[in-house]
C-alpha cells in the first residue's frame, strides 16, 4: 500500500487554506466528474482520488492526522495509542467524527476510497463519505462481454456473472460489435423501495471467420480461374451455413461483385431476416506456364486478346 499525497492530487501546497482546498477541488471535480466523462475509467479513478483527497483535507481532524503522520501513516495507530495514554494523564484529545461536508457522489462502485484511506481513517469514515447521498434508483452496472462472430449468428443463451450473481440471458442474433444493450432491473438494488438499477452490456465481437461484416451484410473474396472468368463456369463458395454452388458469368471482370441475397448475417431483433453476402471475385492469373500453355496464350494474343 502506497502513501498518497493528497496535496499533490489537488495541486496544492501544505499551507493551503480551506478556501483554497475547496476551490482546487471544485476545479478538478468539474474536470473529472464521472457524469461529464462517460465511459472514461481513468477520469473516474482520478475523480475518486480527488474525492478522497477532499474528504481528508477539508476535514480539520482528518487533515491534522494526515499532516501529522503523513508518510508514517502505518505507525499512526501506535502514535494514537501513545497520545491516548498521554491524554489520560491530562494531555490532548482525539477522534475522528463526521462532518457536514459535501462530498460528490458520482455513480461509483463500492471501492470508492483507497486502501490507504481505509487504513488511516477506517471504514466508518469511508461509509460516511461514499454513501451519504440517498439514491432512489439502484446503481446501474456496466459490463463488457466478449463474443465470437460465430457466436452471434444465432440467438444463444449466455450466463454472465455480475457482482457475484449469475444472470442467464439470451443474446439476440445479429448483435453488433460495440453495441450496448440494457438489461432492465439487473443493476444494484434500489434504495428505500426504489427500482433496481439496470445492467448495460457492451459487446466486443471478435471476428473468427473469413467474412468481413458490416451490420447484416457479409463480405468475402473468392478466387476464380482465368478460364472460369473468361468462359464462365461454376464454383463453390463459403457462406455462414456451408458451401453453395455459384455460377460465374462468362466475361467476369476482376474485382466484380455478386450478391447472394439472404446469405448474410441475421438482422438484429428481426427474426428470420438476413442480410446479403457480397462476394468479390479475384481472378487468379496463372504463373509458371508450361510451354504448351504459353503457346496457347500466344495464339490467343494473335486473335487480339
Amino acid at each position: 500500500m502506497e502513501f498518497i499525497d493528497y496535496y499533490k492530487l489537488l495541486e496544492l501546497d501544505k499551507s493551503a487554506s480551506k478556501a483554497d482546498i475547496k476551490k482546487a477541488y471544485r476545479k478538478l471535480a468539474r474536470k473529472y466528474h464521472p457524469d461529464l466523462n462517460p465511459n472514461d475509467k481513468e477520469a473516474q479513478a482520478k475523480f475518486q482520488q480527488i474525492n478522497e483527497a477532499h474528504e481528508v483535507l477539508s476535514d480539520p481532524e482528518k487533515r491534522k492526522k494526515y499532516d501529522e503522520y503523513g508518510k508514517d501513516w502505518q505507525h499512526a495507530d501506535q502514535f494514537e495509542q501513545a497520545k491516548r495514554q498521554q491524554a489520560a494523564s491530562g494531555g490532548f484529545g482525539g477522534g475522528f467524527g463526521g462532518g457536514g461536508r459535501q462530498t460528490y457522489s458520482g455513480n461509483f462502485d463500492d471501492d470508492t476510497f483507497s486502501d490507504f484511506f481505509e487504513q488511516m481513517f477506517g471504514g466508518r469514515a469511508r461509509a460516511e463519505g461514499a454513501h451519504r447521498g440517498a439514491h432512489f434508483k439502484g446503481q446501474d452496472f456496466n459490463a463488457e462481454l466478449q463474443l465470437k462472430l460465430s457466436d452471434v449468428h444465432e440467438s444463444k443463451k449466455h450466463t454472465l456473472t455480475v457482482n457475484g450473481k449469475n444472470i442467464r440471458l439470451t443474446i439476440p442474433a445479429g448483435v453488433e460489435n460495440g453495441q450496448t444493450i440494457k438489461i432492465k432491473g439487473h443493476g444494484g438494488p434500489g434504495i428505500q423501495g426504489g427500482p433496481k438499477g439496470d445492467l448495460y452490456i457492451t459487446f466486443n465481437i471478435l471476428n473468427d471467420t473469413n467474412f468481413r461484416r458490416e451490420k447484416e451484410n457479409l463480405y468475402s473474396t473468392e478466387e476464380i480461374d482465368l478460364t472460369a472468368a473468361a468462359l464462365g463456369g461454376e464454383i463453390q463458395v463459403n457462406t455462414f451455413n456451408g458451401k453453395v454452388k455459384l455460377k460465374v458469368k462468362p466475361g467476369t471482370q476482376n474485382n466484380s461483385k455478386v450478391k447472394l441475397k439472404g446469405k448474410g448475417f441475421p438482422k438484429y431483433k428481426k427474426e428470420g431476416q438476413f442480410g446479403d453476402l457480397i462476394i468479390t471475385y479475384a481472378i487468379k492469373i496463372p504463373e509458371n506456364l508450361t510451354e504448351k500453355q504459353k503457346e496457347l496464350f500466344q495464339e490467343l494474343k494473335k486473335t487480339g486478346i
Binding site: 466528474h33 460528490y104 457522489s105 455513480n107 439514491h135
Partner: peptide, 13 residues
C-alpha cells in the same frame, strides 16, 4: 438516470 445525472451536476458542481 438522466434526472439523477442532472441533479448530481446541479448539486455537486
Amino acid at each position: 438516470a438522466d434526472f439523477e445525472k442532472m441533479m448530481r451536476l446541479h448539486k455537486e458542481l
